[in-house]
Protein backbone atom coordinates (compact mmCIF):
# COMPACT_ATOMS: atom_id res chain seq x y z
CA UNK A 1 0.00 0.00 0.00
CA UNK A 2 2.61 2.50 -1.04
CA UNK A 3 0.36 4.32 -3.50
CA UNK A 4 1.22 8.00 -3.63
CA UNK A 5 -0.89 10.85 -2.35
CA UNK A 6 -2.85 11.31 0.84
CA UNK A 7 -5.45 8.83 2.07
CA UNK A 8 -8.01 11.61 2.06
CA UNK A 9 -8.00 15.16 0.83
CA UNK A 10 -10.79 17.64 1.38
CA UNK A 11 -10.58 20.97 -0.40
CA UNK A 12 -12.95 23.87 0.07
CA UNK A 13 -15.82 21.58 1.11
CA UNK A 14 -19.20 23.30 1.45
CA UNK A 15 -22.41 21.56 2.51
CA UNK A 16 -25.64 23.47 3.14
CA UNK A 17 -28.87 22.31 4.70
CA UNK A 18 -31.76 24.52 3.74
CA UNK A 19 -29.43 27.33 2.65
CA UNK A 20 -27.55 27.30 5.95
CA UNK A 21 -23.92 26.24 5.54
CA UNK A 22 -23.08 23.39 7.92
CA UNK A 23 -19.68 22.88 6.38
CA UNK A 24 -18.26 26.13 5.11
CA UNK A 25 -15.08 25.83 3.07
CA UNK A 26 -13.33 23.05 4.95
CA UNK A 27 -9.92 21.84 3.80
CA UNK A 28 -7.61 19.25 5.31
CA UNK A 29 -5.58 16.21 4.40
CA UNK A 30 -5.19 12.80 6.01
CA UNK A 31 -1.72 11.41 5.39
CA UNK A 32 -1.48 7.70 4.65
CA UNK A 33 -0.93 5.51 7.67
CA UNK A 34 -1.73 8.26 10.14
CA UNK A 35 -4.61 9.15 12.42
CA UNK A 36 -6.39 12.46 11.99
CA UNK A 37 -8.94 13.71 14.50
CA UNK A 38 -11.67 16.11 13.51
CA UNK A 39 -12.25 17.87 16.78
CA UNK A 40 -15.06 20.26 17.45
CA UNK A 41 -18.12 21.04 19.54
CA UNK A 42 -21.46 19.43 18.79
CA UNK A 43 -22.91 20.78 15.57
CA UNK A 44 -19.56 21.96 14.24
CA UNK A 45 -20.03 20.02 11.00
CA UNK A 46 -17.80 17.03 11.80
CA UNK A 47 -20.31 14.30 11.00
CA UNK A 48 -21.52 16.01 7.84
CA UNK A 49 -17.92 16.22 6.66
CA UNK A 50 -17.36 12.53 7.35
CA UNK A 51 -20.61 11.60 5.60
CA UNK A 52 -19.51 13.47 2.49
CA UNK A 53 -16.18 11.61 2.62
CA UNK A 54 -18.07 8.31 3.01
CA UNK A 55 -20.08 9.11 -0.12
CA UNK A 56 -23.41 9.37 1.72
CA UNK A 57 -23.88 13.06 0.98
CA UNK A 58 -22.99 15.11 -2.05
CA UNK A 59 -21.07 18.33 -1.42
CA UNK A 60 -22.47 21.69 -2.57
CA UNK A 61 -18.96 22.86 -3.40
CA UNK A 62 -15.39 21.77 -3.02
CA UNK A 63 -13.60 18.55 -3.78
CA UNK A 64 -13.12 15.35 -1.81
CA UNK A 65 -10.71 12.60 -2.86
CA UNK A 66 -10.68 9.30 -1.01
CA UNK A 67 -7.55 7.28 -1.80
CA UNK A 68 -7.35 9.49 -4.88
CA UNK A 69 -10.91 8.70 -6.04
CA UNK A 70 -14.31 10.39 -5.80
CA UNK A 71 -16.05 9.25 -2.57
CA UNK A 72 -18.84 7.43 -4.41
CA UNK A 73 -16.51 5.31 -6.55
CA UNK A 74 -17.70 1.71 -6.06
CA UNK A 75 -14.14 0.41 -6.10
CA UNK A 76 -13.59 2.18 -2.77
CA UNK A 77 -16.10 0.05 -0.87
CA UNK A 78 -13.78 -2.83 0.02
CA UNK A 79 -10.93 -0.40 0.73
CA UNK A 80 -12.77 1.83 3.18
CA UNK A 81 -14.35 0.90 6.53
CA UNK A 82 -17.15 3.00 7.94
CA UNK A 83 -18.43 3.34 11.49
CA UNK A 84 -21.49 5.61 11.50
CA UNK A 85 -22.44 7.56 14.58
CA UNK A 86 -25.33 5.28 15.45
CA UNK A 87 -27.20 2.22 14.30
CA UNK A 88 -26.43 0.35 11.15
CA UNK A 89 -27.17 -3.24 12.14
CA UNK A 90 -30.16 -5.54 11.75
CA UNK A 91 -31.99 -5.42 15.12
CA UNK A 92 -32.98 -9.07 14.73
CA UNK A 93 -29.52 -10.48 14.03
CA UNK A 94 -27.26 -11.58 16.86
CA UNK A 95 -24.06 -9.65 17.50
CA UNK A 96 -21.85 -12.48 16.17
CA UNK A 97 -24.12 -13.11 13.18
CA UNK A 98 -23.98 -9.47 12.15
CA UNK A 99 -20.18 -9.44 12.31
CA UNK A 100 -19.89 -12.70 10.36
CA UNK A 101 -22.35 -11.38 7.76
CA UNK A 102 -20.28 -8.26 7.08
CA UNK A 103 -17.10 -10.38 7.18
CA UNK A 104 -18.59 -12.53 4.43
CA UNK A 105 -18.59 -9.51 2.09
CA UNK A 106 -14.78 -9.34 2.25
CA UNK A 107 -12.25 -11.46 0.40
CA UNK A 108 -9.80 -11.65 3.31
CA UNK A 109 -11.68 -10.65 6.48
CA UNK A 110 -10.28 -10.57 10.00
CA UNK A 111 -11.29 -13.46 12.21
CA UNK A 112 -14.69 -12.41 13.62
CA UNK A 113 -14.16 -14.52 16.77
CA UNK A 114 -10.93 -12.71 17.54
CA UNK A 115 -12.49 -9.31 17.00
CA UNK A 116 -15.37 -10.19 19.32
CA UNK A 117 -12.88 -11.28 21.95
CA UNK A 118 -10.66 -8.20 21.69
CA UNK A 119 -13.64 -5.89 21.91
CA UNK A 120 -15.20 -7.70 24.85
CA UNK A 121 -18.22 -8.94 22.93
CA UNK A 122 -17.83 -12.70 23.42
CA UNK A 123 -20.48 -12.89 26.16
CA UNK A 124 -23.03 -11.13 23.96
CA UNK A 125 -22.11 -12.84 20.67
CA UNK A 126 -25.46 -14.64 20.75
CA UNK A 127 -27.47 -11.63 21.91
CA UNK A 128 -29.69 -9.91 19.33
CA UNK A 129 -28.38 -6.50 18.33
CA UNK A 130 -31.46 -4.72 19.68
CA UNK A 131 -30.76 -6.07 23.18
CA UNK A 132 -27.11 -4.94 23.28
CA UNK A 133 -26.25 -1.95 25.46
CA UNK A 134 -25.33 1.29 23.72
CA UNK A 135 -21.64 0.65 24.38
CA UNK A 136 -21.83 -2.89 23.02
CA UNK A 137 -23.56 -1.62 19.88
CA UNK A 138 -20.76 0.93 19.46
CA UNK A 139 -18.07 -1.72 19.76
CA UNK A 140 -19.84 -4.01 17.28
CA UNK A 141 -20.10 -1.06 14.92
CA UNK A 142 -16.34 -0.53 15.22
CA UNK A 143 -15.74 -4.21 14.52
CA UNK A 144 -17.96 -4.00 11.42
CA UNK A 145 -15.86 -1.08 10.16
CA UNK A 146 -12.55 -2.94 10.36
CA UNK A 147 -13.46 -6.59 9.72
CA UNK A 148 -12.92 -6.29 5.95
CA UNK A 149 -9.27 -5.19 6.43
CA UNK A 150 -9.66 -1.75 4.82
CA UNK A 151 -6.89 0.73 4.02
CA UNK A 152 -8.82 3.66 5.40
CA UNK A 153 -11.31 3.80 8.25
CA UNK A 154 -13.85 6.50 9.08
CA UNK A 155 -14.89 6.47 12.73
CA UNK A 156 -17.64 8.90 13.68
CA UNK A 157 -17.55 9.45 17.45
CA UNK A 158 -16.16 5.96 18.10
CA UNK A 159 -16.08 6.23 21.89
CA UNK A 160 -19.28 8.19 22.52
CA UNK A 161 -21.06 6.60 25.46
CA UNK A 162 -18.35 4.03 26.20
CA UNK A 163 -17.15 3.15 29.69
CA UNK A 164 -13.42 3.57 30.38
CA UNK A 165 -12.54 -0.08 29.67
CA UNK A 166 -14.35 -0.08 26.35
CA UNK A 167 -12.79 3.25 25.47
CA UNK A 168 -9.33 1.81 26.06
CA UNK A 169 -10.13 -1.25 23.95
CA UNK A 170 -11.18 1.12 21.16
CA UNK A 171 -8.04 3.21 21.54
CA UNK A 172 -5.85 0.11 21.42
CA UNK A 173 -7.54 -0.97 18.22
CA UNK A 174 -7.02 2.45 16.62
CA UNK A 175 -3.37 2.45 17.68
CA UNK A 176 -2.91 -1.05 16.25
CA UNK A 177 -4.57 0.02 12.99
CA UNK A 178 -2.18 2.92 12.72
CA UNK A 179 0.81 0.70 13.52
CA UNK A 180 -0.24 -1.62 10.70
CA UNK A 181 -0.45 1.22 8.20
CA UNK A 182 -4.20 1.83 8.14
CA UNK A 183 -5.24 5.47 7.76
CA UNK A 184 -7.86 6.61 10.26
CA UNK A 185 -10.15 9.62 10.27
CA UNK A 186 -12.05 9.97 13.52
CA UNK A 187 -14.33 12.60 14.90
CA UNK A 188 -14.45 13.34 18.57
CA UNK A 189 -15.18 16.07 21.01
CA UNK A 190 -12.95 14.39 23.57
CA UNK A 191 -9.68 16.21 23.83
CA UNK A 192 -7.81 13.45 25.60
CA UNK A 193 -8.85 11.10 22.82
CA UNK A 194 -7.48 13.39 20.11
CA UNK A 195 -4.34 14.04 22.16
CA UNK A 196 -3.69 10.35 22.66
CA UNK A 197 -4.58 8.95 19.24
CA UNK A 198 -4.11 11.58 16.59
CA UNK A 199 -1.02 12.46 14.61
CA UNK A 200 -2.88 15.49 13.33
CA UNK A 201 -5.80 17.40 14.71
CA UNK A 202 -8.17 19.61 12.77
CA UNK A 203 -10.25 21.78 15.05
CA UNK A 204 -13.56 22.61 13.40
CA UNK A 205 -16.16 25.13 14.46
CA UNK A 206 -19.16 26.45 12.55
CA UNK A 207 -18.08 24.35 9.58
CA UNK A 208 -14.65 25.96 9.30
CA UNK A 209 -11.14 24.93 10.26
CA UNK A 210 -10.08 27.08 13.18
CA UNK A 211 -6.77 25.34 13.76
CA UNK A 212 -4.89 22.42 12.29
CA UNK A 213 -1.62 20.66 12.87
CA UNK A 214 0.02 18.03 15.01
CA UNK A 215 -0.97 17.90 18.65
CA UNK A 216 2.58 18.93 19.47
CA UNK A 217 2.48 21.98 17.22
CA UNK A 218 -0.97 23.05 18.35
CA UNK A 219 -0.12 22.91 22.02
CA UNK A 220 3.39 24.31 21.91
CA UNK A 221 2.60 27.07 19.49
CA UNK A 222 1.87 29.75 22.00
CA UNK A 223 2.12 30.35 25.70
CA UNK A 224 5.10 28.17 26.39
CA UNK A 225 6.21 30.76 28.86
CA UNK A 226 3.88 29.98 31.73
CA UNK A 227 4.59 28.69 35.18
CA UNK A 228 1.57 27.68 37.21
CA UNK A 229 1.28 26.81 40.86
CA UNK A 230 -1.20 26.85 43.67
CA UNK A 231 -0.64 28.31 47.12
CA UNK A 232 -2.50 30.21 49.82
CA UNK A 233 -4.62 32.94 48.25
CA UNK A 234 -3.65 36.60 48.42
CA UNK A 235 0.13 36.45 48.14
CA UNK A 236 1.70 39.80 47.36
CA UNK A 237 2.56 39.52 43.68
CA UNK A 238 4.12 42.99 43.54
CA UNK A 239 6.89 41.69 45.78
CA UNK A 240 7.38 38.75 43.39
CA UNK A 241 7.54 40.98 40.33
CA UNK A 242 10.28 43.07 41.95
CA UNK A 243 12.34 39.91 42.41
CA UNK A 244 11.74 38.59 38.89
CA UNK A 245 13.57 39.75 35.74
CA UNK A 246 12.10 42.80 34.06
CA UNK A 247 9.18 42.00 31.71
CA UNK A 248 7.75 39.07 33.65
CA UNK A 249 4.08 39.05 34.51
CA UNK A 250 2.24 37.41 37.38
CA UNK A 251 -1.39 37.07 38.25
CA UNK A 252 -3.67 35.21 40.62
CA UNK A 253 -6.76 33.77 39.00
CA UNK A 254 -8.81 32.26 40.47
CA UNK A 255 -7.86 32.79 44.11
CA UNK A 256 -4.98 30.52 45.07
CA UNK A 257 -3.97 29.73 41.50
CA UNK A 258 -0.98 31.66 40.24
CA UNK A 259 0.42 32.10 36.77
CA UNK A 260 3.85 33.58 36.12
CA UNK A 261 4.90 34.44 32.57
CA UNK A 262 8.50 34.64 31.43
CA UNK A 263 10.07 37.99 30.45
CA UNK A 264 8.19 39.40 27.43
CA UNK A 265 6.60 36.03 26.77
CA UNK A 266 9.92 34.18 26.68
CA UNK A 267 10.06 30.63 28.03
CA UNK A 268 10.41 30.15 31.75
CA UNK A 269 14.09 29.69 32.49
CA UNK A 270 15.70 28.12 35.55
CA UNK A 271 16.39 31.58 36.98
CA UNK A 272 12.67 32.47 36.97
CA UNK A 273 11.76 29.12 38.48
CA UNK A 274 14.35 29.52 41.26
CA UNK A 275 13.17 33.07 41.96
CA UNK A 276 9.52 31.98 42.27
CA UNK A 277 10.25 29.10 44.62
CA UNK A 278 12.61 31.23 46.73
CA UNK A 279 9.98 33.95 46.96
CA UNK A 280 7.35 31.40 48.00
CA UNK A 281 9.69 30.15 50.71
CA UNK A 282 10.29 33.70 51.82
CA UNK A 283 6.55 34.31 52.01
CA UNK A 284 6.04 31.16 54.04
CA UNK A 285 3.88 29.73 51.24
CA UNK A 286 4.01 26.12 50.08
CA UNK A 287 3.78 26.01 46.26
CA UNK A 288 1.76 23.00 45.17
CA UNK A 289 1.08 21.61 41.68
CA UNK A 290 3.92 23.66 40.33
CA UNK A 291 4.35 23.09 36.63
CA UNK A 292 5.74 24.79 33.58
CA UNK A 293 3.02 24.66 31.03
CA UNK A 294 2.57 23.59 27.63
CA UNK A 295 -0.96 24.59 26.85
CA UNK A 296 -3.19 21.55 26.85
CA UNK A 297 -5.18 20.80 23.74
CA UNK A 298 -8.16 21.72 25.87
CA UNK A 299 -6.84 25.27 26.33
CA UNK A 300 -6.28 25.60 22.60
CA UNK A 301 -9.70 24.19 21.88
CA UNK A 302 -11.56 26.41 24.31
CA UNK A 303 -9.63 29.50 23.26
CA UNK A 304 -10.54 28.87 19.65
CA UNK A 305 -14.13 27.70 19.97
CA UNK A 306 -15.20 29.85 22.90
CA UNK A 307 -16.25 28.86 26.37
CA UNK A 308 -19.96 29.37 26.22
CA UNK A 309 -22.16 26.26 26.22
CA UNK A 310 -23.49 25.08 22.89
CA UNK A 311 -27.15 24.35 22.45
Amino acid sequence: MTAPGPALSVTGLVKRYGGRPVVDGLSFELRRGTVLALLGPNGAGKSTTVEVCEGFRTPDAGEVRVLGLPPTDPSLRPRVGVMPQAGGAYPGLRCGEMLRLVASYAAHPLDPAQLLERLGLVEVARTPYRRLSGGQQQRLSLALAVVGRPELVFLDEPTAGLDPQARHATWELVEALRADGVSVLLTTHLLDEAERLADDVVIVDHGRVVAAGSVEALTSDQATGQLRFRATPGLDLDQLLLALPVGCAAKESPAGSYVVEGPHGAPIDPQVLATVTAWCAGSGAMARDLRIDRRSLEDVFLDLTGRQLRP
Binding site: P78, A106, A107, V146, P150, E151, V182
Partner: peptide, 8 residues
Protein backbone atom coordinates in the same frame (compact mmCIF):
# COMPACT_ATOMS: atom_id res chain seq x y z
CA UNK B 1 -4.68 -5.54 11.03
CA UNK B 2 -2.58 -4.80 7.94
CA UNK B 3 -4.81 -3.75 5.04
CA UNK B 4 -5.88 -6.52 2.71
CA UNK B 5 -8.97 -5.13 1.06
CA UNK B 6 -11.08 -7.02 -1.42
CA UNK B 7 -14.67 -7.97 -2.09
CA UNK B 8 -15.83 -11.55 -1.67
Amino acid sequence: LAPRPGAA
